[in-house]
Design a protein around this nucleic acid. Structure first.
Lengths: 116, 116
DNA sequence: AGTCTATTTAGCTTTTTAGCTAATAAACTA
DNA sequence: TAGTTTATTAGCTAAAAAGCTAAATAGACT
């Protein structure tokens, strides 16, 4: 379970329009876990999920996007893995699940108004 | 529905340990919507939910907490209402619900691995 | 009016962040 | 081995954030 500091870091990572857009884009990407287990012949999918391709969607320099990705990674929102000279990006679904549950919990535990 | 900018502002507001703690504390507070519809005789509850009481839980100056509350308010995470010379704070449950659903949606729409 | 209480706003300092370009590293290609 | 591609790191600047104290505002109480 993420502690308060980790949660704050995570929200902070999502708390910038560019990073939020990047994260949403990563969520929409073809799922590439298979790649990490050695599946072959998926070059197109790989192409779609590497750092440069992500960066090309934004009007910022590659180093800038790289730094944003680093922050998302340190918040455990995404994972990155280098294969050859490219680095592939995928969402960290465990963390996403944890946040989702965190908000459900908040909502469930709110003090309800007595009369309604 | 919150647009991307609004969501980023919201996450940013939660993206600081102190504000996250404040927000969690507000969620735990006695629900005081009744106050805003004119219910009387709930001084203890009111006491528990005013700015000064919240501030007293933290090792920061009152102005600092006031600014944090302002940011939470502008992100629509909390609502504040002045009654007499005190200002009462309560969570904005609509927004909380929206974020919760937002994460559920993210989780539901993620591309699943082909093989599993 | 004068004072007390509760909170915000103003003004300041220090730290952090977001962007850039240039330099570096690592891996592929010829 | 030299050159190319891919991405990170370094180093810089400008803008934003987080903290403080002091001053201002607003309402309640004499």
């Amino acid at each position: 379970m993420l502690d308060l500091e980790a949660k704050a870091r995570l929200f902070k990572a999502l708390g910038h329009p560019t990073r939020l857009r990047i994260y949403k884009q990563v969520l929409q990407m073809p799922y590439v876990c298979g790649i990490h287990q050695g599946t072959e012949g998926e070059d197109l999918i790989r192409q779609a999920t590497c750092v440069g391709t992500i960066a090309s969607e934004f009007n910022y320099s590659l180093p800038t996007i790289s730094r944003h990705l680093k922050e998302l990674r340190e918040a455990r929102l995404i994972r990155m893995e280098k294969i050859g000279n490219k680095i592939y990006v995928e969402p960290d679904l465990e963390t996403l699940k944890e946040i989702s549950e965190c908000f459900e919990g908040m909502l469930a535990n709110v003090n309800s108004p007595a009369g309604s």
